[in-house]
Write a protein that binds this DNA or RNA. Sequence first.
DNA 1: ATTATTTAGGATAAATTTGTCCGAAATAAA
DNA 2: TTTATTTCGGACAAATTTATCCTAAATAAT
Lengths: 144, 144
Amino acid sequence: MFSKACQYAIRAVLYIATQSEQGRRTSLKDISKEIDSPEAFTAKILQQLSKNSILLSIKGPNGGFEIPDETMKRVKLIEIVRIIDGDQLFTGCALGLKACNEEKPCPLHNQFLGIRTNIHQLLENTTIKKLVNDLELGLTFLKR
Amino acid sequence: MFSKACQYAIRAVLYIATQSEQGRRTSLKDISKEIDSPEAFTAKILQQLSKNSILLSIKGPNGGFEIPDETMKRVKLIEIVRIIDGDQLFTGCALGLKACNEEKPCPLHNQFLGIRTNIHQLLENTTIKKLVNDLELGLTFLKR
DNA sequence: ATTATTTAGGATAAATTTGTCCGAAATAAA
DNA sequence: TTTATTTCGGACAAATTTATCCTAAATAAT
């Protein structure tokens, strides 16, 4: 469904967000330990996310990553997915046909229409903040 | 969603099936031309499918591939997907967590529960035959 | 100023997926 | 029996994704 990069991205953002909620800035090292991801690879992903203003990066001692409360309220999952994986997941044809559309549908077009819409809506309607709340309430988990 | 190999697999099976319906055996060359896929790569995929008795392969002059009517009635999409891509798509965790389950759900677990169930049901309930009917009625298309 | 810490970014490498090439095996037809 | 056709299967190659390494840049603390 999502690439590994995208899975790491979402996991990292959520972890950073929980820490930011507590007023704590968190380092790459912490993040990759906590979400169990390869450090250097995660660094690249976080770089991309901060370039796209999903998160803030601060260099130097006591540096690290942060997500302002305003940002986690505003940013939806779909933005992260778009940055890392693009939008093939919810716009592309299930069978990989370029010409597939409403007029010339592939054999799976109509079957997948609903599913793709569901995925799109889910990603569109889910903010980081919402997911962080569940994490803080101990309703969901990030490890392993 | 599906790997390229899996997209080719489904497209090939559907094309072979439409031909089999007409009593025509079809060659690798034809298939890859009709579904616009790399020939040698498609050969590997068809090999896998015939090993798994999704289709029949016949060597020699006038050889090629066939799908008996009984088979296309019986075989569901999920079997093809399982053979080529495995079942990660409908069993794995969206965030790639091994330990994710009902008791210790990842932050996306509940959101994706419905979608994954939908995908699973769709693949489980869709036979090759059903898709071939739509193709023959000109309701759906396989090219590009 | 110097040093230590931390992210940025480029180069490189490993792993996986996608794709190609070619000789072997099967088999139908001449 | 020879030849032509077609799939099989192994080795190899290219492309993409995942992952590592190292130096540079920033910056806080000493």
